[in-house]
């Protein structure tokens, strides 16, 4: 239930309403899919039922009323526990890139594989350039930089894996040819 924990984390500093939480979430994780409002409210409801958050106020604006949620002691404990526990180091074996590249290297014609891999590499490089540009902007905030770093590190890992894979196949072919 990572969205729940992220909301707990966002509420740790300030009490906020759902719309605010969605905005902060999307700002902090620009590279992941934006969360839907529905999901925010469903999650908040679940957290409230568990006693991790509570409604502390209602904000009256021109539009609809907005409930402001705050963290309970239980919620704080839950957040602390989550932050202390280690994430399972999950290998992205089901990543479509890994699947496709593996099949290209193993099953396709050498030229086809090479051309696919080189286009894949170009796509990765373009993406990395984009995120690097984002984080080197003079007005980049710390969360922008952190988010960009995260994506870059993963794209870089993909690239390295790709390049090593190409080299491995090449050296295998050399051995076979010998």
């Amino acid at each position: 239930m990572s969205t729940g924990h992220v909301l707990l984390g966002l509420l740790a500093t300030d009490a906020r309403h759902g719309y605010d939480l969605k905005r902060s979430h999307d700002e902090l994780f620009p590279s992941s899919r934006p969360v839907a409002f529905g999901q925010i409210y469903a999650t908040l409801a679940r957290l409230q039922k568990k006693g991790h958050v509570e409604a502390v106020d209602v904000e009256k604006t021109d539009g609809p009323e907005r409930t402001i949620y705050g963290l309970t002691q239980d919620g704080r404990d839950e957040l602390a526990q989550w932050l202390e526990s280690v994430e399972e180091p999950a290998p992205f074996v089901s990543n479509p890139l890994a699947l496709k590249a593996t099949m290209a290297l193993l099953a396709a014609d050498a030229d086809v594989a090479a051309s696919y891999l080189s286009r894949q590499r170009t796509a990765h490089v373009k993406r990395m350039r984009h995120y690097t540009a984002v984080k080197t902007k003079a007005d980049a905030s710390l969360s922008d930089v952190l988010a960009a770093d995260f994506v870059l590190a993963h794209l870089d890992a993909d690239l390295r894996w790709l390049e090593t894979a190409i080299d491995r196949i090449a050296s295998l072919e050399q051995e076979v040819a010998r």
Binding site: S118, R121, T122, H124, V125, K126, M128, R129, Y131, T132, T136, L152, A153, L155, D156, L159, R160
Partner: peptide, 23 residues
């Protein structure tokens, strides 16, 4: 290092003393 190369606007790939590609 691809991460350093990403600071560039364009990338040339050198292999065996030749420019092999560009991206």
């Amino acid at each position: 290092d691809a991460r350093i190369a990403a600071y560039g606007d364009r990338e040339l790939i050198v292999r065996d003393g030749l420019i092999e590609g560009e991206s």
